[in-house]
Design a protein around this nucleic acid. Structure first.
Length: 120
DNA sequence: TACCTGACTATTT
DNA sequence: AAAATAGCCAGGT
């Protein structure tokens, strides 16, 4: 019993983390991008960048207002593109935002990078 | 319990 | 400077 109870507590903590991730990602302005690591760092969980990616996967099902396509890896690469309907969907969403992408690489990355720690 | 797998990063070759 | 290695942590088998 205690095992189950404990497990549930852990799960709630994770879900809480996901919610915080969504809060931040929702703030990313159109035309800018941020990174998994930057979001994790902004939440004081610098070692949990992988979890930010996991949280992004969960945004596909229900209609949350989370622009997950604006989160890329620390080099400005579209590492999450394989989780969309088509291999180009993520790129198209970003291009609709006004971002230029060449071979999965965000151009002018330093300029469009939006750091939650700095901007908030 | 043990081992594998990732929308990750930082460090070391 | 590219590639390999090594931490990371929640989930799944």
């Amino acid at each position: 019993m205690r095992y189950v109870h404990q497990n549930r507590c852990i799960k709630e903590k994770v879900l809480e983390f996901y919610e915080q991730v969504y809060e931040i990602v929702r703030m990313v302005p159109k035309g800018r991008v941020t990174t998994y690591g930057a979001v994790a760092r902004a939440l004081g969980m610098i070692r949990s960048s992988r979890l930010v990616g996991t949280a992004m996967i969960l945004t596909h099902g229900p209609e949350l207002g989370v622009p997950a396509h604006r989160v890329v890896n620390r080099d400005g690469l579209l590492t999450g593109k394989h989780h969309y309907d088509t291999p180009t969907h993520m790129q198209e969403l970003l291009e609709a935002d006004g971002i230029v992408i060449v071979e999965d690489q965000v151009q002018n990355f330093a300029k469009v990078f939006w750091d939650p720690l700095v901007e908030l």
